[in-house]
Amino acid sequence: MRVYARILAAGFRTQSRYLPAAFAGLLANATFGLLKSGILLTLVDDGGGELDGYTAGTMAAYVWLSQGLLGSVNIWSLPSSAERIKSGDIAVDFLRPADVQLASIADDVGRGLFALIPRGLPSVGVGVLLVGMAMPAQVLPYALGAVSLALGITLSHALAYLLGTAGFWLVEVRGLQVLYMGVAGLLTGLITPVWLFPGWLEAIAVATPFPAVMMYPIDVLSGRTTGTDALWLLAVQAGWLALALAAGQVATRLGRRTLEVQGG
């Protein structure tokens, strides 16, 4: 385990070298935050101040937390491991004593955690100062929220890794990646809260791991979901993470065999 903690810390430090890029990302996030809060708060207002359990305060919290998380979760792109899988360089990684899947995810999670500092916290700051987003007054939601956040960030990178393993068998992963980007973008609740979906779409979303990446951590952290319900969401997240890691492990082993057959 120590080796993965080391890798995670290294990823954290690596990301600290890209501060200008992080601040640039923050500016883009803030713009999107303003655009989204405009329309979503109008929506809540038109609904008489309450819509699907959202008030103006919790809706603002949704907007700024989701924008703040964008630097930390991976919904859009293939991880660096995917590039190595595609080029076959991953064969070298198999010779190292550390597990390829865990090492690669640990590095990405480390970078994601660092991004919370220059992108996550300021985004929340903007939300609190500018639009008066609601944040819970007790300690418990923050403690649970931190765990939920860590689970969500890790899950997003575990899923991205799993997507990248398709490169063992497919010549071109880009089509798949774009499809993933579209589906994940919608179902994680990045574009609109999952709870505003029509019933059938909400049912589909909840049946996938995607809301566990972003929607659940936001619900727990903003205090929209509390108590045993919050604990249940954490359990669901942990379940999806275990499943994604197991699937990634299996895909890596099968892929390694394919690679060895082709290479030998």
Binding site: I39, L40, T42, L43, D46, G47, L51, D52, I191, T192, L196, F197, P198, L201
Partner: peptide
């Protein structure tokens, strides 16, 4: 999604 969730009209 947004305009369907709205109460008739949005903005």
């Amino acid at each position: 999604v947004l305009f369907s969730a709205a109460n008739g009209t949005l903005g």
